[in-house]
Amino acid sequence: MKMGIKARERISNSIIYTILTILSFVWLLPIAWLIMSSLRAEPGAYTTYIIPKGWTLSNYTKLFTETELFNFPRWFANTLFVACVSCVITTMLTLMVAYTYSRLRFRSRKGLMNMSLVLGMFPGFMSMIAIYHFMKLMGLDQSLAALIMVYSGGAALKYYVAKGFFDTIPRSLDEAALIDGATRNVVFFKIILPNSMPIVTYTAIEAFIAPWVDFIFVSVIMKDNYDNYTVALGLFRMLERENIYNYFTQFCAGAVLVAVPITLLFIKIQKFYVGGVVGGAVKG
């Protein structure tokens, strides 16, 4: 029996809807579990059910009131501070490098770009030991300043996306300005930057998110200085064997508090991924 095109289309569409629904369910399940656990009244990490028996907001309030062992407000403030400062520094450095490589022509340009490429191939973690001891010598180990330096220190290597964007701005724009007597300095600040707000936003948000989600670098830098932990490391500690029973639901509450702003920021920059700006940048 032959079906009409329309009927076949309808069947295939409904199959797709079914698959998408099932997949959405699978993808959202851990997140739903996270939110429900954060509102759960019973303690413990390993429940035999998913929907909580009792609901409460005390996990959230406890995060801010019971701060002797896990000082969540302090960690949150630390992370916010580090994120803001390193966001400003990183954005500045990244844009400076990206603009230089994209628009200015000088002798060592190719060499510097190749060097950046090679440096980027070393596992970023490898240099942490050296940085840690270096910080220690300067008396900066286990401090927020060290963390800021670590997060913004690699900015000069992360220029690809921004450079890709600058490359798309027509060169005739700068040339016209240069003929009119503008210096390159003026071209950068008055012409290129105002035309590049999307990429400024993208770079800034990426830099802002990093301290919230990283826990490798911070665990090496901070060791046991609980006061200077960021939320990622602090929350990670809540799930250690001796704490997990009492603190699992609080972990979930803290995680929700971190995840909500990060998610909103990420959704804001997702168009860069869809639009192919990020993809196109790989071409160097």
Binding site: L23, S24, W27, L28, P30, I31, W33, L34, W212, V213, F215, A232, L235, F236, L239, C252, A255, V258, A259, I262, T263, L265, F266, I267, Q270
Partner: peptide, 16 residues
């Protein structure tokens, strides 16, 4: 729906 899952920090979602 799918983007939300990558936006959640990995140390949260993966630990969970």
């Amino acid at each position: 729906i799918f983007v939300v899952t990558i936006a959640v920090p990995q140390f949260v979602s993966l630990l969970l």
